[in-house]
Write a protein that binds this DNA or RNA. Structure first.
Length: 459
RNA sequence: GUCCCGUUCGUCUAGCCAGGCCUAGGACACCGGGUUUUCAUCCCGGCAACAGGGGUUCGAAUCCCCUACGGGAUGCCA
């Protein structure tokens, strides 16, 4: 085990944003890669919006993506509590240290952190007023992604509000010190704040952790400017859960958001990702999230799934849509899925793709109908197929037998191949013009269903 | 305004730190062709980028400077 201790410190808002998930994942990957500890710390100081449900969304999302934490909610750990709302005593104690060192003062009921350096007054263009500023020594941040970043703070800042609650900058630093965090991997929006944090670490006489600031995930320019927000489509992990994406695929896609293994690998199992992951390979530039790529990766995972597992994911989706009885024969389900799995790119599209295997109440696609009927008189063609296929016994209803029956049908009409009957037949039994391979589809459907639907078309 | 960060195909990116192997590679998307006389799969092909300008150098996507653009910070939000 290494001494690496990283943390993910979300504020439960009721959403699990893809950017947060990425930050969590990178921390988790780094912990697993280095055989260190991954700490989950809940920043629930804003009582108004931090509810039980909000925390639940977060924890469920973490687990769904397979990110387990070594210390944190529900499991505890030796550096707890892991909820900021329960760490008041610790914050008071650390405030005392600062006050003792003469680094605080009170103003308007709030407690400020006092910077060291020459003081002067200057008109501030942003605040549109005269303000007291400090010529503090520049702080040097050695960022694992950006390199050396130098930035100087110029104003004292609030660490305890007038209502007595500590601010983000303060609790963040105190928690990182007391939880002995060695690496802080977080979004770039915190890079400018880091000089504040380093000032605080220094004031406490603590060594700042290794920082690594992740590039931001920007929204689609068509949707506006700035970083991706929870209102943007595709930005919430919950959305992928609801759409039945495979968690491993989502995790893989999220890992690729600003990181890559340095070669052409994209679809990787989690062990591979953990092994390859390193902070130095993280991108500097901001990225735009591409849903199409996520879908592609998801499909790659879907194709590789054993049909048993595929059925495990698919069954609830089909049941939800009312296509499948709870106790529907597992073997039959798997036979259907086996011929669909390679053709279909998402679980989400499955009900539409294969619903007709399970119910007679399936929609008829008009375009497919037009296409199928172009081949000739549909009632006539259907009755020809019906006549031919009814000769195949239920016990011998196989691809081979069906192929043979179609062959004989063709021969009887002086055709070399039976393909003129195929589109019509497919349409008659499924209502659409595309789907699984034709003969296997008929075989899996079974004699009764196929003949029944052909009869209907034959009139 | 000030400070900080960034900028390679439409998108994600490799290459940049250690300049020549880059006529800039891969993937997604898109377009075309093929297979499957179904198809959303699969196969083949195509399109398409070093933000701009100066330098340094025999040689720059790679090093330096400037400009432009994008982003972030500048909260008693986190």
């Amino acid at each position: 085990m290494s001494n690496v201790r990283v943390r993910f410190a979300p504020s439960p808002t009721g959403f699990f944003h893809i950017g947060s998930a990425r930050t969590a994942l990178f921390n988790w990957l780094y912990a697993r890669h280095t055989d260190g500890k991954f700490v989950l710390r809940i920043e629930d100081t804003d009582a108004a919006r931090n509810t039980e449900e909000a925390l639940d969304v977060l924890l469920k999302g973490m687990r769904w993506l397979g990110m387990d934490w070594d210390e944190g909610p529900e499991i505890g750990g030796e550096y707890g509590p892991y909820f900021q709302s329960q760490r008041g005593e610790i914050y008071k104690e650390y405030l005392g240290k600062l006050t003792e060192a003469g680094r605080t003062y009170e103003k308007d009921g709030a407690i400020f952190f006092k910077l060291e350096g020459e003081r002067y007054t200057e008109y501030d263009e942003y605040h549109k007023q005269e303000m007291e500023k400090v010529r503090a020594a520049p702080v040097e941040i050695d960022d694992a992604i950006r390199g050396k970043v130098v930035r100087a703070e110029s104003r004292d800042f609030v660490i305890f509000r007038a209502d007595g609650s500590p601010t983000f900058h303060f609790v963040n630093v105190v928690d990182d010190i007391t939880m002995q965090i060695t690496h802080v991997i977080r979004g770039e929006d915190h890079l400018s704040n880091t000089s504040k944090h380093v000032e605080l670490f220094n004031a406490f006489g603590a060594k700042p952790p290794q920082f690594a600031h992740l590039p931001l995930i920007l929204k689609d320019p068509k949707m506006g400017k700035g970083k991706m927000s929870k209102r943007d489509k595709g930005s919430l992990i919950e959305e992928y859960q609801e759409r039945h994406f495979l968690p491993a695929a989502v995790r893989n896609a999220v890992a690729l958001l600003g990181w890559n293994p340095g070669d052409d690998r994209e679809v990787m199992d989690i062990g591979e990702i953990i092994e390859a992951f390193d902070i130095k390979d993280i991108q500097k530039g901001a990225a735009r999230f591409d849903e199409a790529k996520m879908a592609h990766i998801n499909f790659q995972y879907l194709k590789e799934l054993p049909v048993e597992t595929y059925a495990w994911f698919a069954r609830p989706v089909l049941t939800e849509k009312g296509l499948l009885e709870e106790d529907h024969c597992e073997d039959h389900l798997q036979r259907v899925l086996a011929i669909c799995q390679e053709k279909i790119t998402s679980i989400e599209a499955l009900p539409e793709f294969c619903g007709y295997f399970f119910t007679d109440d399936y929609p008829v696609n008009e375009k497919a109908e037009k296409k199928a009927l172009k081949k000739g008189n549909h009632a006539e063609l259907a009755s020809q197929v019906l006549e031919s296929l009814s000769k195949v016994e239920a016990s011998g209803w196989t691809v081979d037998a069906l192929d043979k029956a179609f062959g004989e049908l063709a021969a009887a009409h002086g055709q070399e191949k039976p393909f003129m009957w195929w589109p019509l037949t497919r349409f008659a039994v499924s209502g659409v013009s595309s789907g699984p391979d034709f003969l296997p589809m008929l075989e899996v459907m079974g004699r009764d269903m196929v003949l029944r639907r052909l009869e209907k078309m034959a009139g």
